[in-house]
């Protein structure tokens, strides 16, 4: 019996994703369609910052409110991996977020319901 990595039980694959850093998760999306779909689906299951979709110059992150430390960390990782200066401050009690990112404009939408907010980070300079 041959088992392809994409045939692993979902709980195992979810573990693998959780143990992988964000860059590895992104690269896994390039492995195959099945893996891409599973990664996109699975990150929605993770209770961390959710990287919903990536476009070259826009990053969309759905987060819970109040913001969790793990989510701040994940956003920091994303911005850090993009080799740009960033600074992020968040009040984990109230969910208030003051994001100052050198080359990025940050907008939040509060209308997603279920205590989720969408943060859009757009590159504004090149």
């Amino acid at each position: 019996m041959t088992i392809n990595i994409i045939r692993l039980p979902k709980n195992a694959f979810l573990n693998i994703l959780k143990f992988s850093d964000i860059q590895s998760q992104l690269r896994l999306r390039q492995v195959s369609k099945s893996v891409q779909e599973f990664v996109d689906f699975s990150v929605l299951q993770l209770k961390k910052s959710i990287v919903k979709s990536f476009v070259c110059e826009e990053i969309f992150i759905a987060i819970k409110s109040p913001v969790q430390n793990a989510e701040i960390e994940a956003i920091q990782q994303i911005l850090h991996s993009n080799h740009k200066k960033w600074r992020i401050e968040a009040d984990t009690e109230t969910g208030a977020m003051d994001i100052k990112v050198g080359m990025y404009a940050v907008k939040t939408k509060e209308d997603l319901g279920r205590n989720k907010r969408m943060i859009t980070i757009k590159k504004i300079q090149h």
Partner: peptide, 29 residues
């Protein structure tokens, strides 16, 4: 992604166009 695919023997289900599109999506990282 292609290295992981090769090492773990995952079949490539992407068309060249899809592969290029997803590569561009991830380019920022």
């Amino acid at each position: 992604g292609p290295q992981i695919r090769e090492e773990w023997g995952v079949p490539n289900e992407f068309t060249p166009e899809e592969e290029e599109a997803i590569r561009k999506e991830n380019e920022w990282s």
